[in-house]
């Protein structure tokens, strides 16, 4: 399946929109002792406008920081989260690092490829869904893991993952396992990464079941870390010996 035509960026980096983005860029740059540290967030910012990092986006970053476009391109191409072609409104990543792969990530990735008619790194023609396999996303105790727009969908199966992408294509509200009440779009996610709050931090659970496995057992069996008073007393005793 083909990737959608590269859209025209000209309107995004000119006129009023440009003025607004320049304000955002200023705010980002002001967080750092040296302006160049703002480059990664600025790339997230331009990605939040276009859904990917276009040549115009690179030129915009370069101008804000007084860098050459070659310098910015070298950075943008180093990091896998910056996309040089448009991805879907919902970017679906399946962890196929061995732990997840063995637990079923390989089957999930294969099922989604077939279901969507996509290969790795491709986008559906309607521009809704893109698919990518991921390396370990730090959620191995919830394997197999699927990420959509960098939100956690834990303990997936091929069926649950197919239903997930169907729901996304139908425009139904979809709720991550450990994330906000509703999934945001790829562009909105990129804006959060650039450092602009979307006010949703308090939504969703504090922890998943696996995160609580040890604590629950400790509560059941009455296990606790030592009482500080007791260790202090013991230290005193040893000190006087």
């Amino acid at each position: 399946m083909s990737t959608p035509q590269t859209p025209d960026s000209s309107g995004i980096f000119s006129g009023e929109n440009r003025a607004r983005l320049e304000m955002d860029a200023k705010e980002i740059i002001s967080r750092y002792p040296k302006p160049r540290s703002a480059l990664l967030p600025l790339l997230h910012l331009v990605q939040s406008e276009e859904g990917y990092v276009s040549n115009e986006g690179i030129a915009f970053c370069a101008e804000q920081l007084g860098l050459t476009t070659a310098e910015v391109t070298a950075v943008a191409t180093f990091y896998t989260m910056y996309k040089r072609r448009p991805v879907g409104e919902y970017h679906v990543g399946v962890c196929t690092n061995p732990l997840c792969a063995v637990m079923g990530g390989d089957e999930i990735f294969a099922a989604l490829k077939e279901h969507l008619g996509l290969e790795n790194d491709e986008t559906t023609e309607d521009g809704k869904i893109s698919l990518e396999h991921l390396e370990c996303n730090a959620a191995c105790d919830f394997a197999p893991v699927v990420m959509v727009n960098w939100e956690f969908f834990d303990n997936q199966t091929p069926e649950s993952a197919k239903k997930l992408v169907d729901d996304l294509r139908l425009g139904k509200d979809v709720k991550p396992t450990r994330g906000p009440d509703r999934l945001c779009t790829w562009k909105q996610a990129s804006r959060v990464l650039a450092g602009f709050d979307d006010g949703r931090a308090a939504e969703g659970p504090q922890a998943g079941e696996a995160s609580l496995a040890g604590l629950r057992l400790a509560r059941e069996r009455g296990w606790q870390a030592p009482d500080p008073a007791a260790t202090a007393a013991k230290a005193d005793e040893e000190g006087t010996k």
Partner: peptide, 28 residues
């Protein structure tokens, strides 16, 4: 003293052990 009362002499304290894969209750 409280911290080093946990763990071993050269590896003091507590830490997360993250179990994943073919165990019944994976987790922290």
């Amino acid at each position: 003293e409280w911290f080093s009362s946990m763990g071993t002499e050269k590896s003091a304290g507590f830490g997360f052990f993250s179990l994943s894969g073919h165990v019944k209750r994976p987790g922290q």
